[in-house]
């Protein structure tokens, strides 16, 4: 029942997001066919008629919702004849691979690292360096600095640093992305475990003969990892739907590029399609995570929302 309510609320959110974006984009000043080269009014009218932009905005909105419900995202206004669905179908696997790998790096290395930081007793600069706190540096470099730097490094080592040739060309770019998120993940995990380590239940578990580390991991993990899971939801959605900077620097045909270009070109259909896709994925992740969290901690759903 509660799961049903969570899913229902999410569908409602998707609808509101689509509505807000639709009106924000369509009512914004300027249009897709206003460019530096002025079109003759005749041609502009024909173009707008062809793409259905001359209809009243309410019927455009209803058309838009109807098409989306049937999974049809329309045709790009700028790239002639390309359907938005096809663009996403081609670009999404690249972004999914890139973002998925980055996520694997951030979570796969960040969670053990955070666990280690939480148990670490010694302080001081030397221990900070040995324990990998210098990784924070990666969170301080904007991706448009970190990505070209790593690219130069790969070039120096004789690797391939540009273009897309299957999955293997995603490894290096995903490292730039993953290293940016890794310190955040590790930090959240560290704080989570440090808070849990004060729990009385740990003393009970230890008095029954578990080692401290084992007790913390086996009994404290669900509570300690909850915040990081909540953080990873939106992060994952952002990662797998494309990262403009990293894709541009490494020459990957992912979704980030289309997204930024569609905003600049006023390619309204493509933009709306991409936002709809992004919102769906984001809300899907948030819903799944909310379900997991409510399973891990039944009290979490009862908090005042």
């Amino acid at each position: 029942m509660r799961a049903l309510r969570i899913v229902g609320g999410s569908l409602l959110t998707v609808w509101v997001v689509l509505t807000v974006v639709f009106f924000m984009v369509r009512l914004a000043p300027g249009g897709p066919f206003d460019s530096e080269k002025a079109l003759s009014p005749d041609i502009k009218a024909q173009l707008e008629h062809f793409y259905g932009l001359d209809k009243p905005i309410t019927s455009q909105y209803l058309d838009f919702l109807g098409h989306i419900a049937r999974g049809d995202l329309g045709i790009s206004l700028v790239m002639e004849g390309e359907s938005v669905g096809k663009i996403i179908a081609q670009a999404f696997p690249v972004s999914l691979g890139l973002g998925g790998l980055a996520l694997l790096i951030a979570a796969g290395a960040g969670i053990p690292l955070g666990f280690y930081w939480a148990g670490q007793k010694k302080r001081g600069i030397a221990h900070k360096i040995i324990s990998g706190r210098w990784l924070y540096l990666f969170a301080m470099l904007p991706s448009f600095v970190a990505a070209p730097l790593l690219q130069q490094l790969v070039l120096l080592c004789g690797g391939r640093a540009y273009g897309y040739e299957g999955f293997s060309s995603l490894l290096w770019p995903s490292l730039t992305l993953g290293l940016y998120y890794l310190p955040f993940v590790a930090r959240l995990v560290q704080v989570g475990f440090q808070e849990e380590s004060r729990g009385l239940y740990l003393r009970v578990a230890q008095s029954k003969g578990l080692s401290r580390k084992r007790a913390l991991w086996q009994h404290g993990a669900k509570a300690a990892l909850s915040p990081v899971l909540a953080y990873l939801g939106p992060t994952a959605a952002g990662l797998i739907t494309g990262s403009f900077v990293v894709e541009t620097v490494w020459g990957l045909p992912g979704m980030g590029r289309f997204f930024v270009n569609s905003v600049f070109n006023r390619d309204d259909t493509l933009l709306l399609g991409l936002v709809a896709f992004y919102a769906l994925i984001l809300i899907f992740f948030n819903t799944v995570i909310e379900l997991v969290l409510s399973k891990w901690n039944p009290a979490s759903g009862r908090r005042l929302r």
Partner: peptide, 9 residues
């Protein structure tokens, strides 16, 4: 809803 909107937009 606001969080679901991409920043650049």
């Amino acid at each position: 809803v606001l969080n679901a909107l991409p920043l650049i937009l």
